[in-house]
Amino acid sequence: MNIFRLTGDLSHLAAIIILLLKIWKSRSCAGISGKSQVLFALVFTTRYLDLLTSFISLYNTTMKVIYIGCSYATVYLIYMKLKATYDGNHDTFRVEFLIVPVGGLAFLVNHDFSPLEILWTFSIYLESVAILPQLFMISKTGEAETITTHYLFFLGLYRALYLINWIWRFYFEGFFDMIAIVAGVVQTILYCDFFYLYVTKVLKGKKLSLPA
């Protein structure tokens, strides 16, 4: 464990908690893409199946349980409890255009052709594009609530910190996982446009609205 990975995990946790609290407290999921949240729940489910097979550390297990719990709670709030506030008309990204290619790629490019490893690879590839429905929804509505932009900032920051963690681990441990690194670079690049808007607008107290 290194400071970049720890900060990255805490940033990821912060994003997940911010979103869950925003929806729970405001009793509304307006502006939130339910499709992205379903994809994240799928990412955690397929990646953390090793909860059943191997114990790495209390921290590892605890965080995985929290991530899975919060992501399913968020999906539950969006599609069941607060369904009336879900803005389905703007959440129209065709997720099958993500899941099918990602599924195919996971079969073709992986570290080991075993069920658990292919599911892990699928989850790594899926996570890199899971935010697209949310970014697409914001481009359609033309704006985002400030709390939603903070959610996206911490979510984008987490994988950017992981990139530094991988540089650190390569340098100090000789460890590198090309699949995670390439997917992590793609994932972080997808946030660049948002990061620019976040820094130039939201941090200056303005509302995030598109076109920029």
Binding site: R5, D9, H12, R47, D50, S54, I56, N60, M63, K64, Y67, N110, H111, D112, E117, W120, Y162, N165, D177, M178, A180
Partner: peptide
């Protein structure tokens, strides 16, 4: 292919 015994990252 690089065998990763288990993935220690979240």
């Amino acid at each position: 292919s690089q065998e990763l015994l288990h993935h220690d990252e979240l």
